[in-house]
Design a protein around this nucleic acid. Sequence first.
DNA 1: GTCGACGACTTGAACGATCTAATCCAGGAC
DNA 2: GTCCTGGATTAGATCGTTCAAGTCGTCGAC
Lengths: 342, 342
Amino acid sequence: MTEDRRPTLTTVAQRAQVSRQTVSNVLNTPEIVRPETRERVLRVIAELDYRPNVAARQLRTRRSSVLGLCVPPAADGISGQVLDRFLHALTEEAQRGGLRIMLFTAPDDEAEIREYENLRATTGVDGFVLANTHPRDPRTAWLAAHGVPFVSFGRPWDRGASSHPWVDIDGREGTRAATRHLLDAGHRRIAFLGWPEGSGVGDDRLAGFLAALDAAGLGPGGVVERCEDGVPEGEAAARRALVRDDVTALVCVSDSVALGAMTAVREADLADPARIVAISGFDDTPVAAAVGLTSVAQPVEDVAARAVALVRAQIHGDPVDTDRQVLIEPRLVVRATSPARH
Amino acid sequence: MTEDRRPTLTTVAQRAQVSRQTVSNVLNTPEIVRPETRERVLRVIAELDYRPNVAARQLRTRRSSVLGLCVPPAADGISGQVLDRFLHALTEEAQRGGLRIMLFTAPDDEAEIREYENLRATTGVDGFVLANTHPRDPRTAWLAAHGVPFVSFGRPWDRGASSHPWVDIDGREGTRAATRHLLDAGHRRIAFLGWPEGSGVGDDRLAGFLAALDAAGLGPGGVVERCEDGVPEGEAAARRALVRDDVTALVCVSDSVALGAMTAVREADLADPARIVAISGFDDTPVAAAVGLTSVAQPVEDVAARAVALVRAQIHGDPVDTDRQVLIEPRLVVRATSPARH
DNA sequence: GTCGACGACTTGAACGATCTAATCCAGGAC
DNA sequence: GTCCTGGATTAGATCGTTCAAGTCGTCGAC
């Protein structure tokens, strides 16, 4: 029977001897309220443990402070972990800024676009974060055309694509750093284990490898073996690369590939104890840390922070003080698989 | 300048020559509307592409159709992938039932409880899904005490804990199936690589192993080696177990441990080509599929479905037709690491 | 002394839905 | 004919907030 509801603006107003609006002002535009009354109202708010009802606020202001995020239909292997970490960082960052993340799913791009419409119309979602852009992506174009605030983790890979706000990690710089690190460790003949040509991310990472070799005067070109992402695929590719006796280091496009390479290298090392092949991976997944794999860490926290800032700016219509396209430098984490040569 | 807003109930009502309430009825209680008018209203709704505003609905009904989910602060290794898949399944299942998942984070249990309060008071979240229960968890007690609808993925491990709704996977049955499978394959001396005593999940999985041995007349007891979760830890534990020459199979408490064990086994196999040691893992992570590791798959889709049903029942105050505690059978996925002996 | 400007606060309306109670009308029962 | 019943529909109030347009003094300028 104690059906007592939460206090409302009116409850607070009565108790503090002011009007609803003044209480509202204390919360939204405190500077226009006389300090004395402000204090009094704040005291009552604390006393009653008043919290504004966001549904009512949203109804009036047409702002939900909610961002939509589509979770991909199938966890795509080990690299899903990066997305996992990003999800957490994004939630944290959004929360810090008074935003919430709402999840949804869609089987394909068209369905996802329909969900955008739906979420805008019903829930009043303020904006979206895309976490898995791919070449020829119709979603970014739709969002841009409809004036929906959004940002993508991942740059558009089509040339001449519309320039929407995005944040991405500089994969090229990552492999360049990894390659440079191996060069500094004394390696001269380094192979790259990459993905088949055509994936934006993969090509970008390969470019960094080639650039580093070139800068060291070991280019142009280099030993490149390609395979699909995966542990056994990586193992096979590594075997192909290690056929060349002079190869002493492998720069891998992902931790999965690197993991497979480690198996192949272990065998090669057993066969020829004098030959110690160094390896670097990419993504710095927990597995990499566990097995002591040198890897390129993606600072997803930074990505999340910039992403939130970019959508927020669009939502509030703020002038963008920074670039709408942000490329973030990854960080090389050196571990046991890439010791210095003596 | 084309600031035309979305159609509302009133827009539809005018166009269909009925009252607001009738339109509302068509959507919420169609059976009380005369079929003729219902048709007419539905036609107009389709024409105008009307969608109800959930903020307004929530304000009036005090129902948000939103579930809160706390994403854990740190991705805890490889097992985070199960949670990742669960997250997706949950989103899909919730969406299917007209519910949405809203994310939030909290550094510790107390902060999380504060967020429960906050989300209930401000956003009007209808219920919560807990995905990482642990022994002596204050959160479930708080939620139960405050009459907040919720369900946990993971049973309460404290004895005599309050019986709240939960869904979990029967780990005991999982390792039992894995052990039986190895027994059927002809193994007689099987070791278990488990976590240190005291973790509910780990003890449960060990119990299944012992039960299977017992049932086969090979008990009581068995070879058990314990280690923290992790690839190198698993490798070390496997070495300890393989010191006994008669051990021909390893049942592992997790895929991480199994992954480490695979390395140890590969060495042992090289040393003694006649000895082929079988391995099974737990969780059926993508890595397991990649390296051909026999593993116990957690049907997270089923878990998600039951979880959503359980919260939904609480929210609507429906009588619970099924048990409020659900234990789901895992599924053994046989791969290359556990061939039949000949 | 009058006027306007300004600061501090208040009042009614609006956002878009649902709840409650009322209305209208047809069809029987008596 | 009157009354009741029940199905279909409607009108008004309401949820809790913010917006827009006030009111009410006080202060300074002329």
